[in-house]
Design a binder for these strands. Structure first.
Lengths: 194, 194, 194, 194
DNA sequence: TATGAATGAGCCTTCATTCAT
DNA sequence: CATGAATGAAGGCTCATTCAT
């Protein structure tokens, strides 16, 4: 049953990626999942429920792992590294990348209150991790984080028709440098006038 | 007849903005245009033709006006100013902003070769104008332009649920500063080793 | 178009009579009307609209014709004659009789405010005609009329499984005698103490 | 197990009363009974079996108790008292009243031979009781009984939208007077020409 | 025995599109 | 030229019922 749900979610991602939310019909999803149509409605009362589930799960997957406890002398994570990691994940999971944007626009219309949540969760997580790991004030990272997220979205959109992974990673790195430098500036300003 | 077409395009933008391409049915568009359903198919053989027309027109509107001939001692236009202007236009034309993204994703699936064109036209125009106005090598502006366009898209997406014009403009300016500085760096590098 | 509607109404009556409102699917009705399924929804936005239309029409058909102007020395109409006429009509239009009861129960649940209307219209018409034709006070006929209508319904229900027209007419006449005698009693009482 | 059945019957009455036979789905009934869906089919192979059971039980409940042996100087029961008692029971058991009519129409279509039975049992019982208690010929009560039953049905239908218990009882009494007078007339005729 | 899981069949409705006028 | 009328195809969803456990 729980496994059944997973299969439908997986199938939905694939179908949305190929046909868009518009073309993601219950029949197509069921077929992609190799399951009868009625089973879909047995697992998810409404098609919308399935889509919300998909959208939520993608949001969760994008969030970086909490590394507290992972000892060692790693180089410290920054907004830029989060951005690059997220882009890496999206490039490695094309279907999720495409489905995510489509679902975002869909949810925005269906339930405008729910749509932003994954973005906010993502931003909060980034900020929280950075604040914890480097023991610095929250405000230092807020602006850079939202800039990075908008860059991530913009690059994703651009990647859709260029399909050039290397180029996308290249631009991501430039954006990353930029936001990290922004944080650095803020840090210096803090030192001078705490 | 040509006016009829305009009315349908206008109506389509409004309907797509509200219901998404998914919900932009012929009936709704016809109703929004105050025209009989059959008229729509009289002007545009297929619904898709209408959407392509809409998408193309929006692309055109985003392109900045060519100011050659507009004499005077204006401060020179930069990638950053183009970015800010584009964002201003999008914020002033909400429906177009939303419809554009939706149509972009739709067209990407229907006809992947056509979708990128407006983006490339936009980029080419920016680059051409900058090259002409400042009589500098093309390469100087390419990277900054594409970064700016991705930033524009990302900010648009973010604006969709925040609906905070000021905040969006603020972030746009930061992005603008960044890309302009990037160009400046390139310019210096060029001077050193032409 | 208007004729199309009539055909669907006719078909709906037949299908409801045979299968009940429950079994009166759009497909069956369309088939009975010899029309494509989509045509039904072209004429009646929702299936419910068709049913309401059917119910209303039956109500209208039951109402006796206004005979003012039809000169001559007819024997005066009474509640009892109305009852017998109504039963005659129902027996001559079996499908309508059955469909009416079914629709009544259906409408009662869907829109309790609409369901009673046909009954009230029927009662009002009877009372009005009687009052006019015999130039007597309204109150004289109210009770008898409602008794007659309940008798009509009860006999219809009974007829459903007995399917014995003669027997039904026989009982209708008894009920008719009864309500007419009731009116007669009232009339006498009026004379005595106006 | 037997108790389970009772719960389902009770639940079915409530659901039918609210949603009609049409809307009395297995799910709704199971939910109303607080039982798992599959249990319903464990107790009643087909949904129809449950409905037949419900219809039969309601028929039984309407039948007046046999009072032979209940000594005393009660005033003798008549067709009219039976009618009033039946109406009282229906008014006190609204759900049953509604469900009964709905089921009657349903059964009439599904199995026309079964539907009339409860009515005939009711009529036979009334006639038998009257014949026994007053030691008079059967024929004396037949016509009045069937008239009373049709009145009962008609008043029930009318009560559905008026929901006026007092008014309904009032009309029931008038009908009762009428049928009792009819019996009285028959009785006199019998005396004169046995 | 009792029930969670599963499903084939069918329902109502909407859509883009065509066609006759 | 313009449009009311019409429709095949498909969509989301629910239902009664079965079955494995």
């Amino acid at each position: 049953m729980e496994q059944r749900k997973d299969e439908f979610v997986e199938a939905a991602v694939a179908v949305i990626a190929e046909h868009g939310v518009r073309g993601a019909t219950t029949r197509r999803i069921a077929e992609a999942a190799g399951a009868p149509l009625a089973s879909l409605h047995y697992c998810f009362n409404r098609k919308e429920d399935l889509f919300v589930e998909v959208f939520t799960r993608i949001g969760v997957l994008l969030v970086p792992a909490d590394q507290t406890g992972t000892a060692g002398t790693r180089s410290p994570r920054t907004v830029g590294t989060f951005l690059c990691s997220a882009m890496d994940w999206l490039l490695a999971n094309e279907n999720y990348a495409i489905a995510q944007v489509d679902l975002y626009l869909w949810l925005l219309r269906k339930d405008p209150d729910k749509a932003p949540r994954p973005y906010e969760i993502l931003a909060d997580t980034w900020i929280r991790l950075l604040t914890q790991e480097q023991d610095e004030p929250r405000e230092l990272f807020v602006e850079a984080t939202w800039l990075a997220i908008s860059a991530m979205d913009g690059l994703t959109l651009q990647w859709f028709y260029q399909r050039d992974d290397e180029r996308t990673r290249h631009y991501a790195r430039i954006h990353a440098d930029f936001v990290d430098r922004l944080v650095e500036q803020g840090r210096k300003a803090l030192v001078r006038s705490p």
